[in-house]
């Protein structure tokens, strides 16, 4: 099922156990941040790792998802499930519009275009009244899930976030191992050949992009619900950079890399928060080290060491 190899199944089970045990040892709120970012990173990896397109503006989909979930929870008092779904839908619609433009170019231009489009979204959010400008949307209630599960309890919320993460994780894995995913890999390896085989590669790229944006929006919405806040930070380009870094650090195009990268980076930020601007410097250094000497990332290196595909 889901196309896991035997090692991957074992690794997945280990991850499941860790997710189940972690909240008894670590702060659930911290773990929820990790899981939200991990889902975001997995969604991003779908684009960079499997389609080979670097989107430098994924914060737009994450941040807009967060805003819409936050807004609908706070002002429409919808069910938490609806709000999160709307977050994902926001990512999907925005991804469809911006992706339609961006896939017209590839490589380096794709990165610049996605960044510029995301910056446009950022400026929109800066000025639009509904986002609350610099303050963001604050005091978003967690509300109830399916009308009866009260999410104000951190542990309850944690299990919901964990379920969303796992669902997203498995969905991405299923997509990669579907015939659709095989075509994506073919496009990454040799796009002209895929075209000559009769595949409409632009359609495939766009669908992958929309899927990736949907899950990013979902991750952003979940994050807004957990922390009760959606702000410009979620939609600004440093967030786009952060998700690139998580995937690069964990291992580009690996199954477990993005999750690992999110865990490492969030832990680091947790401990380094008091050092202020040094966090940026350290992130920058990690970026450079990853690119220069460590291109396979943590999971990629571990996998390489034991000759496993993780």
């Amino acid at each position: 099922m889901f196309g896991f190899t035997r090692t991957q199944t074992i690794a997945f089970l280990v991850m499941l156990v860790l997710i189940a045990l972690a909240p008894f040892f670590l702060y659930p709120v911290f773990l929820m941040r990790v899981l939200c970012m991990a889902l975001f990173a997995c969604a991003f990896n779908l684009m960079l790792g499997y389609v080979g397109l670097l989107s430098f503006g994924h914060a737009a989909y994450f941040g807009m998802g967060a805003y819409i979930t936050g807004w609908t929870m706070k002002f429409w008092h919808v069910d938490a499930s609806v709000a999160i779904a709307l977050g994902g839908l926001t990512g999907a619609i925005l991804g469809l519009c911006l992706g339609y433009l961006a896939i017209r170019r590839s490589g380096i231009y794709f990165a610049m275009i996605t960044l510029a489009l995301a910056q446009m979204v950022y400026f929109f959010c800066l000025q639009a009244p509904f986002t609350g400008g610099e303050d963001g949307i604050q005091q978003v209630p967690r509300g109830k899930l399916f009308g009866f599960i009260d999410l104000s309890n951190d542990m309850t919320m944690y299990w919901v976030v964990a379920s969303i993460f796992l669902a997203g994780f498995l969905l991405i894995h299923r997509i990669i191992h579907s015939p659709f995913g095989q075509v994506l890999k073919g496009i990454r390896e040799n796009e002209p050949r895929a075209v000559s085989l009769g595949y409409r590669t632009d359609d495939y790229k766009l669908i992958a992009f929309v899927l990736s944006c949907t899950l990013s929006g979902l991750a952003g919405g979940t994050k807004a619900l957990v922390f009760g806040i959606a702000t410009l930070t979620d939609v600004n380009y440093p967030m786009s950079g952060e998700v690139v870094l998580m995937v690069l650090l964990g291992g580009l195009g690996t199954v477990f890399g993005p999750t690992m990268g999110a865990m490492i980076l969030m832990t680091m930020e947790n401990y380094l928060a008091e050092f202020g601007a040094w966090v940026t410097v350290i992130q920058g250094v990690i970026f450079m080290v990853c690119v220069l000497a460590f291109r396979r990332g943590v999971i990629g290196e571990i996998g390489g060491l034991f000759k496993l595909k993780l």
């Binding site: 670097l54 601007a277 966090v279 410097v281 350290i282 920058g284 250094v285 970026f287 450079m288 690119v291």
Partner: peptide
């Protein structure tokens, strides 16, 4: 692109 992005973060952070 990624390397020079990292550089930008380092320079600005410093």
């Amino acid at each position: 692109l990624l390397l020079t992005f990292g550089m930008a973060l380092v320079i600005e952070g410093l």
